[in-house]
Amino acid sequence: MRLIRFATKGYDRTGCVESTCDGDIVRAYDPVAGPGAVVGPLADVRLLAPCDPRTIVCVGSNYPCQVEEKGRPWPEQPALFLKAPNAVIGPRQPILHPPEVERLEYEGELAVVIGKTARNVTAGNAAAHILGFTCANDVTAHDWRADGQWARAKSADTFCPLGPWITTGIDAGDLGLTTRLGDRIVQRSGTGRMIFGVGEILAWVTRWFTLHPGDVVLTGSPAGVGPMKPGDEVTVAIDGIGALTNPVGLRT
């Protein structure tokens, strides 16, 4: 199932996307009752970020290709950092490039969306706490990270695009991941190449953080991280999930 948040007629709603012979349509969705009445074609609604997390935990250096590319030591456990909820935006919303930043980077990633309160889970039972998966772009102001300002480097407004929806009922253990800058593929890997898998990550994270429904865990980015500038368009696509596209604009 593809779960969405969307805006229509001046207010926000939750829904699900259903494929028909005439194209994708949106139905109202209730977590208890399930799918409801047809809202209309998917093309007629404005997609929002598919969840509204209060906690966003991220993993760094989780692909061998990036560890090698950056010359970093091999991680002994998942390296964690946080992004703030104010950074979240949805599909087609612009990533705002601060004018004082010289290098703003894209980082395509698999995002895990929590469905059930998770504390001290194990790798073996982590799946029971997952609602589904979506695409993420861990936008990073390289200049600010380099000078030690990690909070603003990772959590400025618009620095956490999520979407286009939460895909449920899939195994995210070996999905192809690509990032495109315009028409050019700049990252290509697969979730099966992660150093720490989803279960291991959630077991580690929930030792320290209690995660609640709607919270998000970003699982790391492969090699190929690079700069983007106003006028660019970035797409993070994951097989079996979908594609998240955001234009890049200038923050004023």
Rank of each mutant, 00 (worst) to 15 (best):
C16V: 15
L47G: 02
V67Q: 07
T178R: 15
C65Q: 11
R103T: 10
V198T: 15
S155P: 05
G124K: 11
M228V: 12
I201F: 00
D183Y: 04
V217F: 03
T134W: 00
W208I: 12
D174S: 10
D22F: 07
G36N: 10
L162D: 09
D174M: 01
G173D: 13
N86M: 13
W208D: 11
Q93P: 05
V112N: 08
I25V: 15
P85L: 03
S19F: 07
V236L: 08
R13N: 09
D12Y: 08
G163D: 01
P227Q: 06
V101N: 02
A7L: 13
A37G: 12
V45I: 12
N86T: 13
P78I: 09
P247V: 11
T122I: 03
P230E: 11
I201C: 00
Y63H: 04
T14R: 06
T206S: 08
L250K: 15
H129R: 14
E107R: 12
G108F: 06
A203T: 05
V216D: 03
L250G: 10
E200T: 14
G60H: 10
L181K: 07
P31R: 05
R54G: 11
R180Q: 13
A146M: 14
G169H: 06
L80R: 09
E18D: 12
K9Q: 15
V121S: 05
A153C: 12
I4M: 11
E200W: 06
L244W: 00
A172K: 02
V112E: 08
G108R: 04
G132A: 07
T191F: 03
A7R: 15
G71M: 12
A111T: 14
R5P: 01
P222T: 06
E105L: 01
I114V: 12
P94F: 08
F196R: 04
C51G: 02
C16K: 10
I56S: 02
W150K: 07
D183E: 14
